[in-house]
């Protein structure tokens, strides 16, 4: 049993032991509700399996969309120019992601050009990844901090502060490659699967008894459907509430923020980044040197590998690619990059 899951389970058992609030003169309808609630609650242990099931890309992308919005908001928004006059979110989304894409024009402003550049660079790396065909999206976070983020489904954001710190295109490619690796290896999805199992337990556990709120019943029905559907959760379905999505996303983000990524996930992402850099034609030593100079992790991520360990792991891994290692360093226009990320 997964450690996080082990914590969630006793909490839900506690909920199951809550006294029933049925009045002594309750009618048969209330009995029926309780009986139905008991049947549903009996399925709560099945939620455990959700923690270990692979998530379909549709579900991953739906989660990633919400997490991307969550992170973008928390970090100060995105550094991009929205086409003038656009105010209807749903209509714009349909236009951008539908067949009419050709009609959308993004002005060649500095911000938009910077986003184009990032996506071109990202494409150069993702084409060699294990998930080349998913809809990768690279963007810039409008924040002075030095940070890079990735979400399930292929959203990768780099802060303006980090862009200013970089001194070569290969360093930026290394940062992107590291985040790409987190997505291809589905590292964040572990937190989501744990959150999913946890929310399933909570929904089914507390629903026993009469007087259950309407939205709790809706959540309960959603989770029963998930259990009946081999663990698949269609987050985009009309009957899945915004509240349920918010609970899942907030639970997932909370887990990631509380514990950060696992040490072995960070080291694995560095190793994969080295491979993507080599195949992408970038000098991986630029990324190794960048990591060498990073400030050590904050207390909240103190269990993460130290920079020295990351560097040594990458250098050892790099030896395997000595034959393929690019002998030249693509520079890119770093000055333009810095200018575009400055207000």
């Amino acid at each position: 049993m997964n450690a996080r899951f082990a914590v969630a389970f006793p909490l839900v058992l506690g909920a199951l032991n809550l006294p029933c609030f049925r009045a002594p003169d309750a009618n048969l309808a209330a009995d029926a509700i309780i009986e139905a609630g008991s049947k549903v609650a009996a399925r709560a242990p099945e939620c455990k399996k959700l923690a270990s099931q692979q998530v379909a890309f549709e579900e991953e992308k739906a989660l990633g969309s919400a997490v991307a919005l969550n992170l973008a908001k928390a970090e100060g928004g995105l550094w991009v120019d929205v086409p003038a006059g656009i105010t209807d979110v749903a209509a714009f989304n349909t236009q951008v992601n539908g067949a009419t894409m050709g009609k959308v024009t993004f002005a060649a402003t500095g911000r938009n050009q910077l986003n184009r550049y990032l996506n071109k660079l990202g494409k150069q790396l993702t084409q060699h990844s294990t998930r080349p065909d998913i809809s990768w999206t690279f963007g810039v976070i409008d924040a002075p901090s030095e940070n890079a983020l990735s979400t399930p489904g292929g959203y990768i954001f780099v802060s303006r502060g980090l862009l200013k710190k970089l001194t070569s295109e290969a360093q930026l490619a290394g940062v992107l490659a590291h985040e790409i690796a987190h997505v291809t290896e589905r590292h964040s999805l572990k937190a989501y699967s744990d959150a999913k199992a946890n929310q399933c337990y909570i929904a089914l556990g507390v629903s026993i008894g009469a007087g259950v709120a309407k939205d709790a019943v809706a959540d309960q029905n959603s989770w029963v459907k998930v259990l009946d559907n081999a663990g698949a959760l269609d987050l985009d379905a009309a009957d899945v509430s915004g509240e349920l999505i918010a609970k899942l996303v907030d639970d997932t983000v909370g887990r990631l923020l509380a514990s950060g990524r696992a040490r072995e996930d960070e080291l694995a992402a560095d190793q994969l980044a080295i491979e993507l850099l080599v195949l992408g034609g970038f000098n991986p030593n630029e990324y190794v040197n960048l990591v060498k100079g990073l400030p050590e992790g904050a207390p909240i991520v103190s269990h993460h590998p130290k920079n020295q360990e990351r560097v040594e792991t990458m250098q050892k891994h790099l030896e395997q690619f000595a034959a393929m290692k690019p002998d030249s360093l693509p520079k890119g226009d770093v000055a333009a990059l810095k200018a575009a990320s400055t207000p």
């Binding site: 739906a62 919005l69 991009v80 979110v89 749903a90 714009f92 951008v96 915004g242």
Partner: peptide, 29 residues
């Protein structure tokens, strides 16, 4: 996704700016 839009409506009911910026980056991508 629809889930993303629903999440945004739940969290930012009166401010479409964030969702529009994410969609713009997706469009460029």
């Amino acid at each position: 996704s629809e889930a993303g839009l629903k999440y945004d409506k739940t969290k930012n009911p009166h401010d479409p700016k964030l969702a529009l910026s994410v969609i713009s980056v997706e469009g460029i991508a």
